[in-house]
């Protein structure tokens, strides 16, 4: 691979990571003023802010790699659904608190493993972003772990809701471990994380937590994928409409 190709591939990869971060951040931020109690409301917004910060670092870096004068805002606000390459799990609606926390558990366990590997990336910026994010993610995971226990091993109602959430989201977790040709090239170059290799550890950790929470680990009976190639669920369009409205109505607006 020539240096230009490598740079181009890295730019696409970094955009994927940025897309994952910003879409999840937006979803969590929808709980603002809707949290079950004030402290939880604040906690969710803090987590959303951490993901937003990651999105900004990734988009800024993607724009720099591309070198065509675009900024982080162009990446966030001026791309359509088909140009977004986030994993589907991040765009699913927040539904109830159990769904939000089950998703967070799956993503947080994944991120603790993923970022630990990203620390070793030969790309200095990716390694630096991971060094910041890995510390924040430990706090995120501790919280989603505690909530999973509290809801799973709670009342009959909370247990049922948590089990429903786990069942409904399970088929979306497989996509986190897909590696396509683009990522394969970057893994060989020592830049990207080999996420396929993380699945056994992820499954072990998630199984331990769900079991502790008296929940049943679902069977792998269905899988949905498509986010990395721009094929999304209906939910992303609605999310982008909301998220991009201001920037599209007032192009170039700053404050």
């Amino acid at each position: 691979m020539t240096e230009t190709d490598l740079k181009q591939a890295t730019m696409q990869y970094v955009t994927r990571l940025g897309d994952d971060s910003i879409i999840l951040s937006h979803r969590i931020s929808e709980w603002c003023s809707n949290g079950p109690f004030l402290e939880e409301d604040l906690a969710l917004q803090n987590v959303a802010l951490d993901f937003l910060g990651r999105a900004r670092m990734y988009f800024t870096y993607a724009a720099e790699l591309e070198g065509e004068g675009r900024t982080e805002d162009d990446f966030a606000y001026l791309r359509d659904e088909r140009q977004y390459t986030n994993l589907l799990i991040n765009e699913l609606p927040r539904v109830d608190f159990a769904h939000t926390m089950a998703r967070q558990l799956f993503v947080d366990v994944f991120n603790t493993l993923f970022l630990q590997q990203q620390l070793q990336s030969k790309d200095e910026t990716l390694a630096a972003v991971a060094a910041k994010a890995v510390k924040e993610t430990r706090y995120h995971l501790r919280r989603s772990h505690e909530w999973t226990l509290r809801l799973g091993d709670g009342t009959a109602e909370s247990h049922q809701r948590m089990q429903n959430a786990v069942d409904n989201l399970w088929g979306y977790t497989h996509e986190m471990f897909d590696v396509d040709a683009l990522e394969q090239q970057l893994i060989e170059a020592g830049i990207a994380v080999d996420s396929a290799a993380l699945r056994p550890q992820w499954l072990e950790k998630v199984t331990a937590i769900l079991t502790e929470a008296t929940l049943t680990v679902p069977e792998d009976s269905w899988v949905v994928r498509g986010g990395r190639t721009g094929y999304h669920t209906e939910n992303l369009g609605h999310l982008l409409t909301e998220m991009q409205f201001l920037h599209r109505a007032h192009p170039g607006v700053t404050w």
Partner: peptide
């Protein structure tokens, strides 16, 4: 501890 996350990202309550 009342909350893992406080008024800003760097604080707990």
């Amino acid at each position: 501890r009342l909350s893992e996350f406080g008024s800003t990202a760097c604080k707990a309550l």
